[in-house]
């Protein structure tokens, strides 16, 4: 449980912090909370904890950072299904984690964009969607690699670690 809280807290703080460090039109747009989700999904045995985690994190994220209500709640639950589906076929190796990360970054941006488009918050523009996806890849892949490495090391040295 402490692992969930620590990882989420660090991701949350880093996401808020880095948003003021990098310009928004740079190639470093973070979605660290979603990346944490990939690592936590696999290292937790009870998958219902991950759903609870998704709901609580999404609510806090919606209220505190994105200033909306429901968009991330809906998209995090969909992402949970996507991650579940992908890890049903793929094993937990570094290559597969990277692959899942790429799919999740793309799906996350598409889900949020489609939802905002459907409610009339923004007008559909493929260029903006594409830009949002490719500008999020580098930093999130680096972050997921760091998380994966820490997770693997901790698993190796700590037997009862969650």
């Amino acid at each position: 449980m402490s692992k969930i809280i620590i990882m989420t807290f660090i991701s949350f703080i880093l996401e808020a912090l880095l948003s003021t460090f990098f310009p928004t039109d740079s190639l470093f747009n973070c979605c660290f909370i979603v990346m944490t989700f990939i690592i936590l999904y696999h290292s937790l045995n009870k998958k219902d904890i991950v759903i609870q985690y998704a709901i609580i994190t999404a609510l806090i994220y919606d209220i505190c950072l994105s200033n909306t209500w429901g968009i991330n709640l809906f998209s995090f639950l969909l992402l949970f299904l996507i991650i579940k589906g992908l890890f049903f076929w793929l094993s937990y190796t570094i290559f597969n984690v990277l692959l899942v990360s790429l799919v999740v970054i793309g799906s996350y941006r598409i889900i949020v964009y489609v939802l905002l488009g459907l409610i009339g918050y923004l007008t559909f523009d493929g260029y903006i969607l594409l830009k949002s996806i490719y500008s999020s890849i580098i930093i999130n892949i680096i972050y997921v690699l760091i998380l994966y490495t820490i997770d693997t090391i901790l698993k190796k040295y700590k037997k009862n670690y969650i």
Partner: peptide, 29 residues
């Protein structure tokens, strides 16, 4: 969709619990 649309598009006021969560988390940040 209609719930999200209502919440996102209309400039509603934040409720006291929302304010409390937002202020505490952003204070830590």
């Amino acid at each position: 969709l209609s719930f999200i649309g209502n919440v996102v598009i209309t400039d509603r006021k934040l409720t006291p619990p929302e304010m409390l969560i937002k202020d505490s988390v952003l204070f830590v940040v």
